[in-house]
Amino acid sequence: MNIFRLAGDMTHLFSVLVLLLKIHTIKSCAGVSLKTQELYALVFAARYLDIFTNYISLYNTVMKLIFLGSSFSIVWYMRYHKIVRRSYDKDQDTFRHYFLILPCLLLALLINEKFTFKEVMWTFSLYLEAVAILPQLVLLQRTRNIDNLTGQYVFLLGAYRALYILNWVYRYFTEPHFVHWITWVSGLVQTLLYADFFYYYFQSWKNNQKLHLPA
């Protein structure tokens, strides 16, 4: 475990906490894409199939449980909580997220490191995570007033991805035989999707203005 990896995991954790804080205390999910949250729940379910069979460390297991638990509870809140679900921007959140799932599954069946069920599901989760933010980015673009917590949530998610890339660079130079093309390419694609958001996030921060993404 290097500092970039730990910082990446912590930013990921904070992003989830920020979102849960917004939903749990303000009882609002305005500006949050349920489509993206459902994709993340699917991503973690597919990726952590080995949670009880492949023990890596206590840290690893606890983090997996947190990401699984938080992603499914966020989906539950947005769909079924009687107050929270009223604030969901259903009419704005129209991205056809189902159309992302099938291509990712096909790609995982075609391009993987090993053709086993667990390995294909793991690869599928990487491809799906790479594009899972898209519905959220589209929703942000449509939202007139992006509140601070939603902006911070997306910023932290992007920061987590950027830190993971630094982690891979570090591991490449410090660990022999550390080559993972599938992880790297899908991770890079995922991070690039945040480039536009980052630009406007820093602009609004620099000019001390409210965040607003041009259509």
Binding site: R5, H12, K64, H177, H180
Partner: peptide
């Protein structure tokens, strides 16, 4: 050599 299916990242 580390095994390829040892996914130690989250």
């Amino acid at each position: 050599v580390e095994s390829d299916d040892d996914h130690d990242e989250l």
